[in-house]
């Protein structure tokens, strides 16, 4: 399993709507903030890249020391972003695909406001379980 993995979902309007530290290493408050900062800084790269391909999975689009940024851009330009140290591309892709489905189900709730924070604890539990499984 990845030692370090920070997962974030960023709305089309560049607002984080979910984040979770999903690596095996013990959580450190400063590290988490730094990870989110790195992911946010990569948004410009993601935006340009997204228009060059119809694929949703964009692997290794940026680096920071030994950490890599991989992104999954949905049809509605919601970005699933992962900062990780592992090189398990297949696992990462599967992780993104399964979270994507969870996101769609969340979006289909007519009482969920698109672009707002995902507050469901069940969503959080499932994302963490997927991270343990695939990353």
């Amino acid at each position: 399993m990845a030692n370090t993995a920070c997962f974030m979902i960023v709305s089309k309007n560049d607002i984080p709507i979910y984040e979770a530290e999903v690596g095996a290493a013990p959580r450190k408050e400063d590290a988490a903030h730094q990870h989110q900062f790195i992911l946010h800084a990569a948004l410009d790269i993601v935006q340009d890249l997204a228009w060059t391909t119809s694929a949703m999975f964009l692997k290794g689009i940026d680096r920071f020391n030994d950490l890599v940024v991989s992104v999954y851009v949905t049809a509605g330009h919601t970005r699933l972003m992962l900062l990780h140290d592992s090189r398990n591309d297949d696992g990462i892709k599967s992780f993104f695909q399964e979270v994507h489905e969870l996101y769609i189900k969340t979006l289909l709730n007519p009482l969920y406001l698109p672009g707002s924070r995902i507050t469901s604890s069940h969503f959080d539990t499932k994302v963490r379980a997927l991270a343990r499984k695939y990353l």
Partner: peptide
């Protein structure tokens, strides 16, 4: 509008094999 936002995500996933139109 809100129906469209949902339809986009659902149908790209289900009908278009996760192909994002550019």
């Amino acid at each position: 509008y809100a129906v469209g936002a949902r339809v986009l995500e659902l149908l790209c996933h289900r009908e278009k094999g996760n192909r994002r139109e550019t």
